[in-house]
């Protein structure tokens, strides 16, 4: 089922963040959402994930099982990278998958390292691994490759593209090249 966003409005006090915003996120496809800073990209993500209420308008077709990479990593800093990812796993097989995924993301040597000791780019990859390991029908990626060097970014993007094939994904980004790598369906905040 497509996710249909109709006439969505959201303000914070006097500041209007989303104004009569309309979009359709096709089922099983990746949609990129682009816009400048403060254009309401994260607000839209928060509404779609159920963390915030829109002032008016509607959103239909959001599946029950959701996953996300947040703008901030939102990891438990005192725990290891593996523990953070395995926290979303339900069984042993999934936990094994989590380990392999971290290895694929170039974190083989840092699996047992406390998150607080990891670099920004490493934390980003842990957050990505967690989002991809969770069971989901709709995935929100809010600037998921922020802080990654070019080489790691390329590899990570390739892996994410493979792993999200056939899933409904909303990719929030500033980077047009990044958006085009994933999809032709690009919406902007102005729409």
């Amino acid at each position: 089922m497509n996710i249909i966003i109709s006439d969505l409005c959201k303000s914070y006090g006097e500041k209007k963040v989303l104004q009569h915003f309309n979009a359709t996120l096709p089922n099983g496809k990746t949609t990129a959402f682009m816009g400048t800073s403060g254009s309401g990209k994260t607000t839209l993500a928060n509404i779609l994930l159920g963390f915030e209420q829109a002032d008016s308008g509607s959103v239909t077709g959001i599946p029950e099982r959701k996953s996300a990479v947040f703008q901030e990593d939102r990891l438990s800093e005192n725990f290891s990278a593996l523990t953070n990812v395995q926290a979303v796993c339900k069984n042993k097989a999934e936990k094994e998958k989590a380990k392999k995924l971290l290895e694929s993301l170039g974190l083989a040597n840092d699996i047992k390292t406390q998150v607080k000791s990891l670099s920004g780019g490493m934390k980003r990859r842990v957050a990505l691994a967690r989002a991809l390991c969770a069971e989901y029908d709709f995935l929100v990626l809010d600037e998921p490759f922020k802080g990654l060097d070019e080489q790691t970014k390329e590899k990570t993007m390739q892996l994410v593209k493979e792993m999200t094939k056939g899933k409904t994904v909303l990719l929030i980004t500033h980077d047009k090249e990044e958006a085009l790598f994933f999809t032709d369906t690009i919406i902007t905040a102005e729409e």
Partner: peptide, 24 residues
């Protein structure tokens, strides 16, 4: 509160919620 949102999104059990979010 952002970590609590995270715990809700990933349907953390009581134990995981306590250990990963509240306890730290």
């Amino acid at each position: 509160p952002k970590m609590l949102q995270c715990a809700d999104l990933f349907h953390f059990s009581f134990f995981k919620r306590f250990l990963l979010v509240r306890f730290p």
